[in-house]
C-alpha cells in the first residue's frame, strides 16, 4: 500500500468529517503564482474569482448520467444545474476537468446526454474515465468520445497556465481484493512524461479513484498510487484531484495537496458510517442543500487547510 495513509497530523478526524458533510456541484480552482488554490464550490467561488488573478479551472466529477435511483432520480437534472451555475459565473474559467463516472452504465445515450449538458458550458473539458465509463460490452464508447490523443486506457498530459496537468486512469485491470490500479505501463509513461521537467513546474495529477488511501475497506485508494506520487516527489507544488467517493476530502502532505470533489449526482457516506459506500439517500430538501458551497484555500508550506463551507439553503 502507499505510504500516504491518513496520519494523525494534518486535518483532524473531526475536520475531515465536517468537510464530508457537504455535497456540491463543482470545485473551482485558481492558480496564482503557480500554486493551485481551491476557491470552493461554484457560488462562493464567484466573488473570489473576480478578485483572483491567474488561471482558473473547474473540476466536476461523478455525474453518473443515467442514475435514477432514490438517492437522486434525476442525475442528469442536477448535472444541468451544476452547468448552469458554471455558466452564471462572472469570470469564465479557462477549462474544466471531469474526474470520471460521466455515465452510470456506459450506455451510448448516457454519454450523449452528458455531452449535451456539459457542452453547454462551452468550456474545453479534459476527461479521465471512472469505472462506470467502461461498462459497455466492447469498452469503446468512452474511448471513441474522449480517447483521442491519449495513451493506453486514456491517460495523457497537457500544459496550461504554466502548470503541467496529468490525467491518469486507475479504473482498469483491477485485481480481486485490491484497490484502484495504474499498472506498470502507465507508471513507466508517467515517469517518462515528468523526465526533464523543471522541479519548479507545478503539477496537477487527476484521476477518478483517489490516488491516496482514503478507506481501503471500501476500495477507496489506488494500489500503486504511491509509485505515481514518488515520481512527483521532487516537485515544489503537486495537487492531486480525484472523484469517486462523492464527498470532499483533503489532506496536505509536504508539497502535495490531495483533494476529492463532490458528485453532481448523489452523495456517498463518510467512510465507515454506513454498511456500504452505496448512494446515500437524504431528504429531497437536503440533497439541494448539500449542493452547497465551500471554499478551500491552501497555500504552499501551510499544513492546515482553511475550509469555509456555506450551504445554498439552510
Amino acid at each position: 500500500m502507499s505510504g500516504h495513509d491518513h496520519g494523525e497530523d494534518g486535518v483532524s478526524r473531526r475536520k475531515v468529517l465536517e468537510c464530508m458533510t457537504w455535497a456540491g456541484t463543482g470545485v473551482l480552482w485558481t492558480i496564482t503564482g503557480g500554486v493551485p488554490r481551491s476557491l470552493g464550490i461554484i457560488d462562493s467561488a464567484q466573488a473570489a474569482t473576480a478578485a483572483a488573478p491567474g488561471m482558473t479551472f473547474l473540476q466536476i466529477s461523478d455525474s453518473h448520467v443515467g442514475f435514477d435511483k432514490p438517492a437522486n432520480p434525476n442525475a442528469l437534472g442536477t448535472l444541468e444545474e451544476a452547468i448552469n451555475k458554471i455558466n452564471a459565473m462572472p469570470a469564465k474559467p479557462s477549462f474544466m476537468i471531469h474526474t470520471g463516472d460521466i455515465t452510470h452504465l456506459s450506455k451510448a445515450a448516457e454519454f450523449d446526454n452528458a455531452d449535451r449538458i456539459i457542452s453547454q458550458s462551452k468550456l474545453d473539458v479534459h476527461y479521465v474515465p471512472g469505472e462506470h465509463d467502461f461498462l459497455d460490452e466492447e469498452v469503446k464508447f468512452y474511448r471513441e468520445r474522449y480517447g483521442r490523443g491519449t495513451k493506453g486506457a486514456g491517460w495523457y498530459s497537457f500544459d496550461a497556465g504554466g502548470v503541467h496537468f496529468i490525467g491518469l486512469v486507475n479504473v482498469v485491470d483491477l485485481k480481486g481484493g485490491g484497490l484502484g490500479n495504474l499498472g506498470a505501463e502507465q507508471l513507466a509513461w508517467l515517469e517518462d512524461d515528468l523526465r526533464g521537467k523543471s522541479k519548479s513546474t507545478p503539477v496537477v495529477l487527476f484521476a477518478h479513484i483517489p490516488l491516496w488511501t482514503v478507506y481501503p475497506e471500501w476500495g477507496w485508494g489506488t494500489e500503486d498510487g504511491g509509485r505515481a506520487l514518488e515520481y512527483v516527489k521532487g516537485f515544489g507544488s503537486v495537487t492531486v484531484l480525484n472523484g469517486h467517493i462523492h464527498q470532499v476530502m483533503q489532506k496536505v502532505e509536504g508539497n502535495v495537496t490531495f483533494h476529492t470533489a463532490r458528485s453532481t449526482a448523489f452523495p456517498q457516506p463518510a467512510p465507515g458510517t454506513a454498511p456500504s459506500p452505496g448512494p446515500m439517500k437524504v431528504e429531497d430538501a437536503k440533497l439541494r442543500s448539500m449542493l452547497g458551497v465551500a471554499s478551500i484555500n491552501f497555500k504552499q508550506n501551510e499544513q492546515r487547510l482553511a475550509i469555509i463551507d456555506t450551504p445554498i439553503q439552510g
Binding site: E131, H132, L135, L174, K175, G176, G177, G178, L179, P216, E217, W218, G219
Partner: peptide, 8 residues
C-alpha cells in the same frame, strides 16, 4: 471471484 468494478 470478485467484482471487477469494486475489487474489494
Amino acid at each position: 471471484y470478485f467484482c471487477s468494478l469494486h475489487p474489494h
